[in-house]
Design a protein around this nucleic acid. Structure first.
Lengths: 339, 339
DNA sequence: CAATAGAGTGGGAGCGCTCCCAGATGATTG
DNA sequence: CAATCATCTGGGAGCGCTCCCACTCTATTG
C-alpha cells in the first residue's frame, strides 16, 4: 500500500539517495531531477515512514507537551486550552506533531518515557508551580525544553508574557482614574505568574507615590470561587477599586460586590487579567489585560525548534507583550478620566 | 547513553532475542532467565527505542486524537477538555501516547500524514458534525478508528452516551412534575448529539400522550449566547418548562428568564444537559443530565485498543449511561412532586 | 530405548530510512 | 590538453528492534 523510498526511486529511475535528498530538500540535486522526483512523489502520494526516519536519523518531529499539576485546575482553565491550541497549530505548520502528556504524578511513567529515549525532539513544559517536581527529571533527560511561564532556574528556557509590567500598567490605570484604595486579589503564591502580577501591583502603587496597604491584598486561587472569597474578605477594608489577577476571579468578585449591594464601577472599580471571552460579556464589561495564550504556544514551538536547530548552552527567553483593554468596569468614562 | 537491546543482552549474558522476549512479555522464557534479565533492564534503566520498534513491528503505541471543526468552539467547551483528559489518562495507563491533531481543515495536512503511514496505531476521531469531511480520508487510511459520538456511517465504530434516552428521561421528569408546555432549546441540527437529544425530547412528550408543539422547539448552538437567543424566542410562546440541550445554553436561558422578570422554577422550570461544574453553582442549581466525558475518552481508548488487538470487520459500539441529576431548577420540591 | 514432542534459546534477515564515501560527469584552470 | 575542481548521483552500512527459523536440551511416549 504505502510506497517506500526505494519504490519511488525505482519509479522515477533514480537512486534511493536521490529521492531522499529531494524529500529532505537537500540542495545537491539538479533541478531537473528534483522536479521529476517531486512529480512521482506527488503522484504516488508518498510519505516517508516516520519510524524509519527516526531510527536512521536519531531524531523525530514530535514535540511533547507536558502539562502536570492537577488536571481539573489545568484543563478547566481556558488559558491552557488556548495554549494547547497554539502549540498544535504552530507544530503543525512546522511539520511537527504534538504528543500530549497531561496530568499529575501518575504520569510520571509517561514523562520518564518521553524524556528518556529519542521519542521526542523537544518538550514544552507547562509548570504547575515554582520548582515543579517534574522539572528536574525533564532537565536531566537532556532533551531540549521550553517552559511556558517564567522559571527561576537558570537552566530553563521559557516563554512568558510580561505579567509584572502588565499588572503594573493596569493598576496604574486604576490609580490614574482617581482610585486610591486599590486592592488586589492575587493568585496563588506558588505560581510565578501570580507572584509577578502581585509584584506589578505593588510597583504601580509605589510608583504612584502611595504606600502599599497589606490589608488590601488577598491571596487566593485563580478560580471564580477564589475571586468571591477574596472579594468578600476585601470588602471589609473598603477598597474603591480591585485588580483581580484573573478574569475568572474578577467574575467571582463581581458577583460578591453585587451581592453586597454595591455598584460597579461607581462604588468599586474592577479590573481583571486574561481577557477571556467572558470579560467582554460581563455586566459591566471588564477592564482587563489581554494575553493571547495561543501566541505563547506558538512562541514556545518556535523557540523550541530554534533550540533544536542551533543548540546553545545558555537558555533563551521570549517575553510576549500584552494589551491593556479598557472597558466600563474600571469607571473610565470620559468624564471620569478627567477628574 | 541510552542502552540498546543488544547491550542489555550482553550485560545479562543472553541473546538479543531473549531480552526482546522478556521486554515484550513473551511466555517462552524460563522464569530464572526472565527474572535475571528484568533485573538488568531495571538496573540499566533500559527503554526500548520506539522508532526501532515501530519500524520492525510495523506498529506503534501512539494514538491520534483528531478533533476537527472550529477550534474555538471545540476547546472552549469543557466537554472536549474532559474528553481529552480521559483519553490521555487511559492511553497512559495502557502504555500508549496521545498525539494531538486539533483544528480545522488547515490541519488536513497533518491528518493526511497521520492517516497514511504507520505513524499511529489508531485514531480517536471527534467529529464536529454529521458527515464530517475528515471522516472519509480517515476511513480510507484503513487505520483503526473510534469516533466519539454516534455516526450514521456503518463503517464507523464509536462510543457515545445515550443522548436520546437521557433527553427523554429528563423531559419526562419535567412532564411528571406537572409541566405541560415543555419547550426545548436544541443544539445545532448537524450535531448528532443535538439531534438525538431533540429526538428524546419528542419521544418523551409523545410517550406522555401529548402532542409536540413545534413552536416550543428552538434550534440554536450549544453556547451560552445560543441559549439566550433561544430562550428569548421561546418566551413568546409561554413555556412552563425548558429543556436546554447543554448546561451552557441553560445558563444563557436562565439569564434571559431572569431578565424577563420571571422566577425559576416557579414561573418556568429549567433543565440542562452535561452537569458541568457550573450547573451545581447556578442560582437555582440546575437539574441536568450528568455525562462524564472522561469516561467517553477512556471507553474510546479501550475500544480502539481492542479493535487493534483483535480486528474484526464489523464496527463496534459502546454506549455509556448517564445520570439524571435533579436539583432545584426544575421545581421538584416535595410538594410539587405531588401536584 | 529409539522416536517424538515440547520448552527454551540464539542468530539471520530485514523493516525504511539517513549518512557517508566513492564514482561519474562536465566545467575550469595553468 | 592534462590536471583539478565542483556538481551530481549511486550504493553500502547501519540505526535498534521484531520476526522467523533452526538448534539444543530435557521430558515423554509406545
Amino acid at each position: 500500500m504505502a510506497r517506500t523510498l526505494e519504490q519511488i526511486a525505482e519509479l522515477s529511475g533514480v537512486s534511493r539517495s536521490t529521492v531522499s535528498r529531494v524529500v529532505n530538500d537537500d540542495p545537491r540535486v539538479s533541478e531537473a531531477t528534483r522536479e521529476h522526483v517531486r512529480d512521482v512523489v506527488r503522484r504516488e502520494g508518498y510519505r516517508p515512514n516516520l519510524a524509519a526516519r527516526g531510527l536512521a536519523s536519531g531524531t523525530t518531529n514530535v514535540i511533547a507537551a507536558v502539562m502536570p499539576g492537577a488536571v481539573d485546575n489545568i484543563l478547566s482553565d481556558p488559558f491552557f486550552v488556548s495554549l494547547l491550541h497554539g502549540l498544535a497549530v504552530a507544530a503543525d505548520e512546522r511539520d511537527h506533531f504534538v504528543m500530549l502528556s497531561l496530568g499529575d504524578t501518575s504520569f510520571r511513567h509517561t514523562v520518564d518515557e518521553i524524556a528518556r529515549q529519542g521519542v521526542v525532539a523537544g518538550i514544552v513544559f507547562v509548570a504547575g508551580q515554582v520548582d515543579d517536581p517534574l522539572l528536574e527529571p525533564l532537565l536531566a533527560s537532556q532533551t531540549p525544553m521550553v517552559s511556558i511561564g517564567r522559571s527561576d532556574d537558570d537552566r530553563v528556557s521559557y516563554v512568558d508574557v510580561d505579567n509584572r509590567g502588565s499588572a503594573q500598567q493596569i493598576t496604574s490605570h486604576l490609580l490614574r482614574l482617581g482610585h486610591r484604595r486599590v486592592a488586589t486579589i492575587a493568585g496563588p503564591n506558588f505560581a510565578p505568574a501570580a507572584a509577578d502580577r502581585l509584584a506589578g501591583y505593588r510597583a504601580a502603587i509605589e510608583a504612584f507615590g502611595l504606600r502599599v496597604d497589606e490589608t488590601l491584598i488577598y491571596e487566593s486561587d485563580f478560580s471564580e470561587a477564589g475571586g468571591r472569597v477574596g472579594m468578600r474578605a476585601l470588602l471589609e477594608h473598603r477598597p474603591d477599586a480591585v485588580f483581580a489577577a484573573s478574569d475568572r476571579m474578577a467574575a467571582g468578585a463581581l458577583n460578591e460586590i453585587r451581592a453586597a449591594g454595591l455598584q460597579i464601577p461607581d462604588d468599586i472599580a474592577l479590573a481583571g487579567f486574561d481577557d477571556m471571552p467572558l470579560a467582554a460579556e460581563m455586566e459591566p464589561p471588564l477592564t482587563t489585560v489581554r494575553q493571547r495564550p495561543e501566541r505563547l504556544g506558538e512562541a514556545a514551538v518556535a523557540l523550541l525548534l530554534d533550540m533544536i536547530a542551533t543548540p546553545a548552552s545558555s537558555p533563551r527567553r521570549t517575553i510576549l507583550p500584552t494589551d491593556l483593554i479598557v472597558r466600563a468596569s474600571c469607571g473610565s468614562r470620559q468624564d471620569q478620566k478627567e477628574r
